Amino acid sequence: LLPSFEIGAWTEDDVYCWVQQLVRKGDSSAEMSVYASLFKENNITGKRLLLLEEEDLKDMGIVSKGHIIHFKSAIEKLTHDYIN
């Protein structure tokens, strides 16, 4: 489970856990499981996660359009939940 809904306070480890949970919950393929490490390697914290754009995801090595859409949708939901 994630430490809190205060996404802005999430550490790199918290984001890593979130990506792992996202991959487990989704209908995503096994190749998506490597993405948790990509987020950690790129020092993505909660604040940075909320700022990620499609180009950032591509720069991190996420090239599948479907996977990018999956992440963007999940990040938008997080942003919405965080604001409300």
Rank of each mutant, 00 (worst) to 15 (best):
G8A: 14
K65F: 03
L51I: 07
F5A: 15
E55C: 06
M32T: 05
E31Q: 04
D27P: 13
V15G: 02
G61L: 02
D59T: 12
I69E: 15
M60D: 00
D14T: 05
A30N: 08
S73D: 12
A9S: 14
L22N: 06
W10H: 03
Q20L: 08
N43V: 01
D59Y: 05
M32R: 01
H70T: 15
V63A: 11
S4C: 08
I69K: 14
F71Q: 01
E55P: 07
I68W: 01
D81N: 10
G26F: 13
E31F: 03
E76D: 12
V23D: 14
L52R: 03
S4L: 07
I68A: 09
D81R: 10
Y16A: 10
D14E: 07
Y82Q: 12
F39I: 04
I7T: 02
S64D: 15
S33E: 15
I62S: 06
T11W: 02
E76K: 15
G8Y: 09
H70Y: 15
D56W: 03
L78N: 02
T79S: 13
N84G: 12
L2Q: 07
E53V: 09
R24K: 12
F5Y: 15
E54K: 04
G26V: 10
V19S: 03
W10A: 04
D81F: 11
S64R: 11
L52Q: 00
E41Y: 04
A36C: 03
G26H: 14
S4K: 13
H80R: 13
D13W: 03
K77F: 07
G61Q: 04
V23L: 07
V19C: 03
D14P: 06
T11R: 00
A30E: 15
L38H: 08
L78W: 00
L51G: 12
N42D: 12
I69V: 11
F5L: 11
H67P: 00
G61N: 03
H67N: 06
L51H: 11
V23Y: 08
S29G: 11
E54N: 07
W10I: 01
W10Y: 00
V19R: 02
P3S: 15
G26Y: 13
K65D: 10
A30H: 09
V19Y: 02
S4P: 12
I83Q: 14
Q21G: 11
W10E: 02
Y16W: 03
L51Q: 15
L1E: 15
L57S: 05
D27E: 06
L2H: 14
K40H: 07
E53W: 03
L78K: 03
F39A: 01
D56S: 03
F39Y: 02
I69N: 13
E54Y: 06
K72S: 05
I62Y: 04
P3R: 13
Y35H: 05
W18G: 01
H70R: 12
C17A: 12
D13T: 04
N43R: 14
E6L: 02
G61R: 03
S28T: 13
R24H: 12
N84E: 11
K58F: 06
I44M: 02
K25E: 14
K77P: 00
A36K: 01
R24G: 14
A74I: 09
I7H: 09
L78G: 01
K40M: 00
L52H: 04
F39K: 08
G61M: 03
L22S: 06
D56F: 04
A74R: 03
D13A: 04
I69G: 12
R24L: 14
I83L: 13
S37H: 13
K25N: 12
G46S: 03
S29A: 12
K72D: 05
H70C: 08
L38G: 00
I83W: 13
N43Q: 12
V23G: 13
Q20F: 00
I62T: 01
Q20H: 08
